[in-house]
Amino acid sequence: MSGFFLTLWISLAVIIAGSALGFLLGILLSYGAMPLRWLIRGYVDAVRGTPVLVLILATYYLLAIAGVNFTAIQSGLFALSIFCSAHMAEIVRGALQSIPRTQIEAGRSIGLTFPKILLYVLMPQALLQILPVWINTGAELVKASTLLSVIGVGELLLRTQETVGRNFMTLEFYALCGILFFVINFALEQLGKLAERRFAFVRRGR
């Protein structure tokens, strides 16, 4: 059961940290200065082009070589947050760029500064598109957290394996493990649907 809560905690922390960074990168990717945009584009493409497992192993071993002493959990959180941020950046960029430029002009014409346009005009519209994909990314992350077992983080899967190793009740415990993952992701999905319904009034406008 400690594995279940660790999985839950890791997923939540990664979604929050990764999304926060992802939103920032996505906004800069859409409206930042040119050299900065190229830099972020490089980061996003590099991370998205790397398998999560490689990312996890790389942070675990490379950071140690670089002299940063992270525990397994810390480097796992780091790797997954990086992974999440790159995906979120791309999602946020896509959503922002689908909003016509005339919306920015309309905001400018009434005297709004760009940060205010972003906050009150662009983001509310973008959020609607981001939401379903965001939930999806969250579910992916919950599943990707199982990969942390390879660097010895005692999350749900590793704990299940250990338990099975002791009592040989293979079927029962893997089934339980599967059900628990399903519970997490089902809850996440319901949360997403709830949020979507709350914002549904905007969708009709499109």
Binding site: T102, Q103, A106, G107, R108, S109, I110, G111, Q125, L128
Partner: peptide, 18 residues
């Protein structure tokens, strides 16, 4: 600040849909 002194109405309305 200066833009707020001139109002503009566009061909394609450009209302905020949300």
């Amino acid at each position: 600040r200066q833009r707020a002194n001139t109002g503009m109405v566009f061909q394609s309305f450009n209302l905020f849909p949300h």
